[in-house]
Amino acid sequence: MSGEPRGPEVLRITANAGVVQARQLVRTLAQECRFSLVEQTKLITAASELARNTLVHGGGGTMTASVVEERGRRGTRLVFADEGPGIADVDLALTDGWTSGGGMGLGLSGSRRLVDDFVLDTEPGRGTVVTVTKWVR
């Protein structure tokens, strides 16, 4: 494990361009962590879904991305935060195939499967924060 963990970078997601920038930043961090191409793709896909959710359902927000080291492992942590309406039924929102819009319904549940750690903090009227971490194998 070479180099120091990379400090957090905060990216505003207020338009489609922010979703593209989120993917690009996550790709850079995943490469710095030396994820395999398959693991990079999983993390970038999860980031893309969560950034799109932040924009579409949360009305925009931020992604905070960093390289982290914990217990001798190195990974990439992404925190997506918005001040949107929040999620009333978390279990339903995490069900494969369920969608509150016109999407495929794989955003939250699919993202959860693509990463190693997934934490969803939401409440109606308070917004949503999703924290995901992928560890180098």
Rank of each mutant, 00 (worst) to 15 (best):
M1N: 01
M1S: 05
M1H: 10
M1C: 13
S2W: 00
G3Q: 14
P5V: 01
G7L: 13
G7T: 11
G7I: 08
I13Y: 09
I13Q: 12
T14R: 12
N16K: 15
G18H: 07
V19C: 14
V20E: 15
V20G: 07
V20Q: 14
V20N: 12
Q21P: 10
Q21Y: 11
A22W: 07
L25G: 00
L25M: 12
V26G: 00
V26P: 08
R27C: 00
A30D: 05
Q31E: 14
Q31D: 07
Q31A: 15
Q31Y: 00
E32Q: 15
E32G: 13
C33H: 00
R34T: 12
L37F: 13
E39Q: 14
Q40D: 13
Q40E: 15
T41W: 03
K42E: 10
I44Q: 11
T45K: 05
S48E: 06
E49I: 06
L50A: 08
L50F: 09
A51S: 14
A51K: 04
R52Y: 02
R52T: 12
R52W: 02
T54G: 06
L55S: 05
L55K: 04
V56G: 07
H57I: 04
G58C: 07
G58Q: 05
G60Y: 11
G60T: 03
G61Y: 08
G61I: 01
T62A: 10
T62E: 15
T62Y: 10
M63W: 00
M63L: 15
V68M: 13
G72H: 09
G72M: 07
G72I: 01
R73K: 05
R74N: 02
T76Y: 06
T76L: 14
R77S: 12
R77Q: 13
L78D: 04
V79W: 01
F80R: 14
D82K: 10
E83G: 08
E83R: 11
G84M: 07
G86C: 08
G86T: 08
G86M: 09
G86A: 14
A88K: 12
D89C: 14
V90S: 03
D91L: 06
L92C: 15
L94T: 03
G97D: 01
W98V: 13
S100W: 11
S100F: 13
S100L: 08
G101D: 15
L106W: 05
L106C: 07
L106Y: 03
G107S: 10
G107A: 11
G107C: 09
L108I: 01
S109T: 02
S109M: 04
G110H: 02
S111H: 02
S111T: 01
S111R: 01
R112H: 06
R112S: 09
R113L: 12
R113M: 04
L114R: 02
V115E: 02
D116Q: 08
D117P: 03
F118C: 01
F118L: 09
V119Q: 14
V119S: 12
L120I: 14
L120Q: 10
D121H: 07
T122R: 08
P124T: 06
P124Q: 07
R126G: 06
G127C: 11
G127Q: 10
T128I: 09
V130A: 15
V130C: 13
T131Y: 05
V132N: 00
T133L: 03
K134M: 10
W135H: 05
